[in-house]
């Protein structure tokens, strides 16, 4: 690596010249990030120890933290996030992995076309696709009439009014939007795998599912971990879908009895919907910060172990 950087062997005067240039090049970005990321996140930390209404705040080290533990809405938001994490993330990733392995097979015709089609949902705007799903899943709408016509159900499914089905709807929607995205990562990783190992296993009589579980999956482990962590972080930050599929102007609830309330929606409501309580909202936002930090650390260490 050292030979790549001629400044190592340059004269002190030239070194200084390069160093000054280096700082000038990175300065605008560093400044912007300092002002719009680092300062706010520290500000938010300070705010999380403030309590009161509106602009009348006073310092209290423990009030907000204690409130976290007796807040049923926060419990509900965490519970919903866990459901999405436990049900939606595995379903989506398994689907993405299956699709990727199928599309990696050179014998499959129209691969490019099918790949583009499956990838297309990630191009759509989150809000636009949410309202499309809302229109398809209304009580007497397309999905229910189709299912009724096919005889799969005997009465319309209450997608928007039942807590259980509203969660199912959110899961279907997110899966539609993000499966193709994850598939692209798997496809790229599959294309880097040495095909001769697969060929050897095939000749040795290992069946397709055996090769999938004992060759493909282990070799894709880093990518699978990466997609799991990014999907989980995405779930923690879920906002656009819940607000646009479940919420109407009439009320601030996120779905029937807040069955789709997520942490981000809750923070938004605490800040801009109810009587604003910036201090407590900041404390709740640190719940996400800590969760994301832990997940990222997990990914970092798990990936480092391998290299």
């Amino acid at each position: 690596m050292r030979t790549r950087h001629s400044m190592d062997k340059a004269s002190p005067r030239l070194n200084r010249y390069f160093d000054v240039n280096g700082w000038l090049f990175v300065a605008p970005a560093v400044l912007l990030i300092a002002v719009f990321m680092v300062y706010p996140i520290l500000y938010s930390l300070w705010m999380s120890f403030q309590t009161g209404r509106g602009m009348k705040m006073h310092f209290d080290l423990t009030a907000n933290i204690l409130r976290l533990f007796s807040d049923p809405m926060l419990g509900l938001a965490l519970y919903n996030t866990m459901i999405f994490f436990i049900v939606q993330v595995p379903v989506m990733l398994i689907l993405a992995l299956l699709l990727a392995t199928m599309l990696d097979d050179k014998r499959v015709r129209f691969r490019g076309l099918i790949r583009t089609a499956i990838f297309l949902p990630c191009v759509s705007s989150l809000v636009a696709y949410s309202v499309l799903f809302k229109s398809m899943f209304v009580q007497d709408g397309l999905v229910n009439t189709t299912l009724l016509d096919l005889g799969l159900i005997s009465s319309p499914i209450p997608w928007m009014t039942d807590p259980f089905w509203s969660r199912v709807l959110i899961i279907i929607a997110i899966t539609w939007r993000w499966t193709g995205y994850n598939m692209i990562f798997y496809l790229a990783a599959l294309q880097n795998i040495d095909k001769s190992i697969h060929e050897a296993a095939r000749i040795d009589g290992v069946p397709a599912y055996g090769r999938f579980f004992f060759l493909t999956v282990p070799m894709l482990k880093p990518v699978i971990l990466f997609t799991t962590v990014t999907s989980t972080i995405g779930t923690l930050q879920l906002f656009d879908e819940v607000r646009n599929i479940m919420t109407s102007d009439a009320g601030g609830a996120a779905g029937p009895s807040n069955s789709a309330l997520t942490l981000s929606v809750y923070i938004y409501n605490l800040t801009f919907k109810f009587m604003p309580n910036f201090g407590y909202a900041a404390t709740v936002s640190y719940v996400i910060v800590i969760a994301v930090a832990l997940l990222s650390l997990l990914q970092f260490y798990a990936l480092r172990e391998r290299t």
Partner: peptide
Amino acid sequence: TLMIPFAALMIPL
């Protein structure tokens, strides 16, 4: 800073 979720920034911002 990649790890900072936007929800934690929106109030101070």
